[in-house]
Amino acid sequence: MNKIFIILLMVFIGSACTKENFIDTGKASGIFDGNILEYMKNDPYNWDSTVVVIEWAGLTSLFEGKDAQYPEITFFGPTRLSILRYMLNNGIERIKDVEPEVWKEMMLRYVIPGKHMKDSFAVGDIDDGGDEFTAIAGNRIRVYRKLNPYKDTPDVGAATLHIQSIDTGYSIVMIASADIEPDNGAVHSLVYGFTFGKF
């Protein structure tokens, strides 16, 4: 009796795994049809405060790709939680309580000229390697791509992206989501735990 039950169960399971039960959702893609500012406005949960800062600081044209000096940029994006944490730590109630020029200088510390995707950054680690850049605000940052192990095999697992402020010596910050690709550059989102203003 038990053998018949097991055989019937196996036949039932096997027949359920047909082509019609499989849903192909396609490959994940970071490409966004629109500019960087439009991308952020499309995801208010992560970027609403970032967008308000950008607009209040007079940086709309830069993030829309309309700045002739910087047609493409790479943005190491502090999310809304990073900005709200900065405001809470500094007793700021509203973004517009701070002068636009202050926000502008701070936000430009996270922007480098040109489009730089994850694979374009040199391999490095916490102590050495990677690439050094001068952000639009004039501060220096180091970005490196870390090759992680998979099980016992080194350097074959997922590659992660990390950023460090050379000027302030702020500790390494991991990129939470890399290779978001709007029309006018690249966005690499910083982890939620990062506090805006540390660079």
Rank of each mutant, 00 (worst) to 15 (best):
N148M: 05
S177N: 13
V156P: 04
F32L: 08
L84E: 13
E72L: 08
A158I: 15
R140W: 01
E93S: 10
A122F: 03
V173I: 10
S15Q: 11
P100N: 06
R94G: 05
I126H: 11
G14H: 04
F196S: 00
I112H: 01
Y45M: 11
L59W: 00
K151C: 11
E99D: 14
I36V: 12
D155Q: 10
F199C: 02
I163N: 00
R80G: 14
G114F: 04
D183L: 05
S171I: 07
P154L: 12
G26H: 10
G124T: 02
M1K: 14
V11D: 03
G129L: 08
T195C: 05
P78R: 07
G26F: 10
V156L: 07
R145A: 00
E105N: 13
P71Q: 08
I83S: 00
K104T: 05
D33R: 10
E38G: 04
I6N: 13
G169H: 03
Y110W: 09
I83G: 00
N42L: 11
E132D: 10
D67E: 07
I166G: 03
G185V: 02
A68Y: 10
G193T: 13
I136C: 04
D48M: 14
E72N: 13
N184P: 08
V51Y: 03
D97N: 12
M1S: 14
L88I: 12
R142D: 03
A176D: 09
P182S: 02
V102C: 06
K198C: 12
A122H: 05
Y86D: 02
P44N: 03
P78W: 01
K198N: 13
D152P: 02
A68G: 09
G193C: 07
I163G: 00
D119V: 06
V156D: 10
T18E: 06
E132F: 09
N46Q: 12
H116W: 06
M106Y: 07
F196V: 01
N90Y: 06
Y45S: 13
R109F: 09
A57Q: 07
I7L: 13
N89T: 09
Y150G: 04
I7S: 07
V156W: 09
A159R: 06
L37G: 02
A137Y: 14
Y150W: 14
N139C: 13
A176W: 04
Y86V: 01
Y110D: 02
G114M: 04
V53D: 01
F22D: 08
S189E: 08
S177K: 12
I36P: 01
C17R: 14
N2S: 14
I95N: 07
K3M: 15
W47H: 11
M106K: 13
M106V: 09
K3G: 12
D183C: 06
I163H: 01
L190Q: 04
A28F: 15
L108R: 03
K96E: 15
I175E: 00
K115I: 04
R140M: 05
A186M: 05
D119P: 01
L84A: 11
P182G: 01
E101F: 08
P182R: 00
V191S: 14
L161S: 02
S189D: 05
P182K: 00
E93F: 07
Y150T: 04
P113F: 03
I54G: 01
K104R: 14
Y192D: 14
T50Q: 04
F32Q: 04
Q69I: 15
N35L: 04
V123F: 11
A159K: 07
D127A: 13
V187L: 07
G91V: 03
I136W: 05
P182E: 00
A159I: 03
F196N: 00
